[in-house]
Design a binder for these strands. Structure first.
Lengths: 119, 119
DNA sequence: CGGGATCCCCCCAGATACTG
DNA sequence: CAGTATCTGGGGGGATCCCG
């Protein structure tokens, strides 16, 4: 599994770490997956249940990309039957939490500001 | 011109300001446009010149979305001929700068970490 | 100079079925 | 339970042309 984030970091003809960060967290379900895993480790089916509208295919894709980028880690417990897999943030993923929280707060303030000015 | 950011904030069936923020800055050229405009006001053609690979169509699209979301402001100077337009960050756009810088720093650290661990 | 309109192609993601 | 394989369509974005 290749890293997905570093491949296109020079898309604009120059190194841009901001783009690397965006590539890591941008994806139809990545941000909300990260929100879930910030709070607790979760199993595949648990994640699926808390993501209404997300197909198994998409969940697999998003999870595998986050894992390839070393943001989350997958744990398979072979003692369970049927199989049990769970996902949790890596240390690198944990380091992203403050950024995510800052973006969440900015978004909330942004929404409030626009509600005042556009009504 | 409609806001682009607020329309899908409940995509997952719940309000998620993080997604609003991501929607504002995610786009094929938005992040690098913001990087440019953080430093100085620029004209359409100046922006285009510093974005190798970006077509005029895409530049127009990305700029109009950023403007619709009140992140940048467009200024048309009618005294010039031919027409002269320039773009600069709004106050709301300025408030995004610390987030962008934090994401840029995280990305740089991320790249360094992965270079150590994957080599 | 700073765009908009149109055509067209390719890729992303949904639907569905299959598997260890 | 936790995925993968295949098919298919709809939309994003490139190329091109037009306009005030």
């Amino acid at each position: 599994m290749m890293l997905t984030a570093l491949n296109t970091q020079t898309r604009h003809g120059e190194v841009c770490p901001l783009d690397t960060t965006l590539k890591v967290i941008t994806g139809k379900w990545k941000s909300i997956i990260l929100c879930r895993l910030m709070k607790q480790e979760l199993r595949y089916s648990e994640l699926l249940r808390t993501l209404p509208g997300c197909t198994r295919r998409m969940l697999s894709l998003q999870l595998s990309q986050l894992e390839a980028d070393h943001i989350i880690q997958k744990e398979v417990d072979p003692t369970y039957t049927p199989i049990k897999t769970s996902y949790h943030l890596t240390e690198l993923g944990q380091s992203l939490v403050p950024i995510i929280q800052a973006m969440d707060q900015w978004g909330a303030q942004y929404i409030k500001t626009l509600e005042r000015t556009t009504d």
